[in-house]
Design a protein around this nucleic acid. Structure first.
Lengths: 194, 194
DNA sequence: TCAAAAAGTAGACACCTGTTGAGTTATTGT
DNA sequence: ACAATAACTCAACAGGTGTCTACTTTTTGA
């Protein structure tokens, strides 16, 4: 029982495990409470770690937050020549990912962006360079970027009210029903030709 | 110079003036910073009032917040028989009111609802009973409430990204352009007949 | 096996929070 | 003019925050 017993699975340093546990717990709490109400002491208690360890690993609360909300959107696999299909991919991808994991980095960031300028700037940059630009590229129209932005805002509004705010009717409905109502509308925004 | 000099305009008690100044300042700060980051001391300093006066007038921070976000939507004047007109009234009314006053009670509440369950509950109740139910009443469809909710979510998404998050393209565009793109889409959600 | 390095812990710090209660000043009705 | 009352101010409390430093324990590589 020298080393193999506790360090578990792969030849993974012990620190990696706790680092990941901190990150997962932080994501969960940031998602539930927002940036301000989430405390380092709270994360430490939930992750069964000392508060000092968190600072040791991530430096500061801000840096921990940045690490927690870092995510990647597989744009290449979502954008197609067909706007109908593209809208469906984005919409379904976003909503089902939020449904599967209420603590998804994007949900956390959206929530925090309302009260933290730092978070807002991260979100603006991410959404603009990855989502809006990608959608706009598939739209042949002088207002392509505005159309993509409006469509993105609509999607985010639906996602926010369903998963973050949990508004009565929209949160209770089946995902398919929401998509069935929303998709044609969003398509109308980005597809001027129709 | 006994009383008319300082108590100003109407036969208004002195307390009314400061009460209103506190409320306006609170609205502004709650809008800029959200619920958590807005402090009673900060409001007191900005309103040039002692911190204790705020508690004297409103009891607690929560009660001050509730007073600050209390607003009324003139639904009766907005809903018509024509869904096209109704959608326009709601959309234009909401966006232009946010444009005119960035510290409108609704904007403040939307911002705070992301991090405060108390604020979220206020928003849910207000939106559901006033906006969603009103729109749903004009739609003849078994899914009327869901349709109204999805439409409302879209509107809020646009307003939030334009005025709260200040997303690049959607915040820079003319209001008319945004309305021109968004209205037909939202109409498509609540008017199944078309 | 055993020193070196990594990981984890305890305690304190300086600061800021909402809230309270007692005391002071200004404004009111008569 | 003057007592009654409303409006306001001051100082302090009890609790919570992020972060730092010094220390102890555990894990690691030769």
């Amino acid at each position: 029982m020298t080393q193999a017993a506790t360090s578990a699975s792969a030849g993974e340093r012990k620190g990696e495990r706790t680092r990941r546990r901190i990150l997962e717990t932080a994501r969960r709490l940031f998602a539930e409470l927002g940036y301000e109400r989430t405390t380092i002491r709270g994360i430490a208690a939930a992750a069964e770690v000392d508060k000092s360890s968190i600072l040791q690993y991530f430096g500061s609360k801000q840096q921990l937050f940045r690490a927690a909300v870092h995510w990647h959107i597989p744009i290449a696999e979502m954008t197609t020549d067909d706007p109908v299909q593209t809208v469906h991919n984005f919409m379904h991808g976003m909503l089902s990912s939020w449904a599967a994991d209420p603590n998804s980095p994007m949900a956390v960031l959206v929530r925090a962006s309302m009260t933290s300028e730092d978070a807002a700037e991260l979100l603006r940059h991410h959404i603009t360079t990855e989502v809006v630009d990608a959608i706009a590229a598939t739209v042949d129209d002088p207002e392509a970027h505005l159309r993509a932005s409006v469509a993105g805002a609509m999607m985010m509004g639906i996602a926010a009210q369903r998963y973050l705010l949990r508004m009565p009717h929209i949160a209770d409905a089946d995902l398919d029903d929401v998509l069935r109502l929303a998709e044609p509308a969003i398509r109308a925004v980005i597809a001027p030709a129709d």
